[in-house]
């Protein structure tokens, strides 16, 4: 599904050079549930950004479904993100001025589609995360767990093949965190969506099929 070979990422500023990732080799297989663990600053988020085509590696090769992305332009990358990838963030990143259902529709805005169909798909996605009753609310009126469920609905509305979740339970208490994890597990099992989840939490990581551990930008096994 997504394959990283000898990936290295260096952040350069005029003063310092920081090695965020080095020599990463990961092959995410279709339909698997993968956890990425590591202390803060170990490069987990950078790894996820590279997998989600939000960031390009300094060295090495990223392939998605067997096609290298290095030669792709901005528009092609945007299209791949739109069709293949769904993002869930720790701090939800919902647009406060839009209602729940409008937030969920965002990925579909960048596809050619009738607006009635968009609305139908957004409502269906909200139903899957159990938020059908809150479609007209604004994010400010929701709890953290509800916000994260909206974010998941937004990630799945475009029926992506892979969901990249960056500490999706990080801002939530354990009860809400458990609910979110259940949704992700359900998606993985019932719809065969590939899930990559960055987490701090060993208990959560244990419930996934495979764990990749990072330390100071390198894989440790």
């Amino acid at each position: 599904m997504i394959k990283l070979e000898n990936v290295e990422k260096v952040y350069r500023t005029s003063a310092i050079e920081t090695l965020a990732l080095s020599d990463i080799n990961i092959d995410v297989r279709k339909g698997e549930f993968l956890a990425v663990m590591g202390p803060s600053g170990s490069g987990k988020s950078t790894l996820l950004n590279i997998m989600g085509l939000l960031d390009a590696p300094t060295e090495g090769c990223v392939e998605i479904e067997g096609r290298p992305v290095i030669s792709m332009g901005d528009r092609q990358l945007a299209r791949l993100r739109n069709e293949k990838v769904g993002f869930v963030f720790q701090s939800y990143h919902l647009i406060n001025d839009l209602t729940v259902v409008d937030n969920v529709e965002i990925p579909l805005l960048y596809r050619r589609m009738a607006s009635s169909q968009r609305r139908r798909m957004a409502l269906a996605a909200l139903e899957k995360v159990g938020l059908s009753a809150r479609t007209k609310h604004f994010p400010g009126q929701l709890s953290g767990g509800q916000c994260q469920r909206v974010a998941i609905a937004r990630a799945i509305v475009g029926e992506p093949e892979i969901i990249l979740a960056d500490e999706p339970t990080g801002n939530l208490d354990s009860v809400m965190g458990e609910e979110i994890l259940k949704i992700l597990v359900g998606l993985n099992e019932n719809e065969e969506t590939t899930v990559v989840m960055v987490t701090h939490n060993q208990a959560m990581a244990d419930r996934t099929e495979r764990i990749i551990r990072l330390f100071d930008g390198s894989q440790v096994n």
């Binding site: 945007a78 993100r81 739109n82 069709e83 990925p107």
Partner: peptide, 14 residues
């Protein structure tokens, strides 16, 4: 907001 839109598949032109 712009970051989210980009992640969701908006190109820089969008």
């Amino acid at each position: 907001e712009i970051g989210v839109r980009r992640a969701m598949g908006a190109s820089s032109l969008d």
